[in-house]
Design a protein around this nucleic acid. Structure first.
Lengths: 191, 191
DNA sequence: GCGTATACTTACCTGTAAGTAAGGAAGGAA
DNA sequence: TTCCTTCCTTACTTACAGGTAAGTATACGC
């Protein structure tokens, strides 16, 4: 049996809440009550909410790095990488995490500390770098067909997924599959 | 000199705040203070925050209808319609309204009243109907080139713009122009 | 002049948010 | 045993949110 520290439990709970309701959509109480601890216990581990947020962003970034580092290092076919991104997105939404971290932060972006902003920026940058490489590789290997710079195309796709997630929240999950299908079509993927 | 009622001023101020900070990002005080009125005055016109929100959504919807009704009725070239949407988006962002209404509501969607949800849904529906017609017309008239159903393509573009707006907020406005350029490229627009 | 509706203000209530100071239990090192 | 550190609780504070009840000034129909 693996012990789970209070700190880890706090992060897990907060992560879930963050991606369900956004930064201002949950309070310390929403974390402490289900964990049967007191609010002050959270303040012990994370003096203020920004410290907690920092940990959540780091957690999120870590998740990305783990699932993309191999491709970044060794390359390989691009198509499964893109499909992996689609699957990941669908999976997150199905697991009750309809909002992505970037989307959750975007609304309250202006009152975030510089440190947080920087962490968020570097997450976006890493995502973009990765997807740009996927697009480049895919075009070189004749898996994808598109015009224009790979980086710009990658940006477009990231934006599309971002927006699709938002629309899925207010509409239905089906919209995600439709939009992914259109991205494939636009890339000349027929199979 | 045109008189501006308190009610209108409240809506204007709230509309601005809503699209700057999202639903939970502003309080009655943020409205009442600059207008030199009391919070209770807002409650007089809008008994609770949901009533205010209703008015804001209606305002937003009205704006869309005004700028799209002509095309819906009489058709015409599709390209300027799409460019109009791009311009509108850029303009909103430049006017300090980086968040679109749908994006602002998406985060807190779960605790909105049914009436609000319905109003929001019908806004999305109207937008989608309009852009679908633009895409259909554009393809028929050989202005746009794309594969797949027009409605699906329209959904993709709306999602892309939605996401682009979010990313612009955390990154820079330049990203909007890049993403619009990519949408044009994907549609086979060269000029 | 006399009600009455409109458009507010004053004064207040309740709930809840983030955050803090002080203290206590449990364990390891000296 | 004593002391120190770690991890937490108890018991608060401060601030501000949305919301309400009662009173007031102004204008308008009668």
């Amino acid at each position: 049996m693996q012990i789970v520290t209070t700190r880890e439990q706090i992060i897990n709970q907060a992560f879930q809440l963050m991606l369900q309701r956004g930064l201002n959509g949950f309070s310390y109480r929403d974390i402490s009550e289900p964990l049967r601890i007191k609010n002050a216990a959270i303040h012990y581990h994370f003096p203020n909410k920004m410290d907690l947020l920092s940990a959540l962003i780091a957690e999120n970034h870590q998740l990305l790095r783990e699932s993309t580092s191999e491709f970044m290092a060794y390359g390989g076919p691009a198509r499964p990488q893109l499909e992996g991104l689609f699957d990941y997105t669908l999976n997150q939404c199905e697991c009750g995490r309809p909002i992505c971290m970037v989307g959750a932060l975007a609304v309250d972006y202006k009152d975030l500390s510089d440190k947080i902003k920087q962490a968020n920026d570097s997450f976006i940058h890493d995502s973009l770098t990765w997807l740009t490489k996927v697009m480049e590789t895919g075009r070189e290997q004749d898996e994808f067909h598109f015009e224009g710079p790979a980086k710009r195309k990658a940006m477009g796709i990231l934006a599309t997924i971002q927006g699709a997630r938002q629309m899925a929240r207010v509409d239905s999950m089906d919209i995600l599959n439709s939009i992914f299908a259109q991205i494939r079509t636009d890339l000349g993927i027929t199979s």
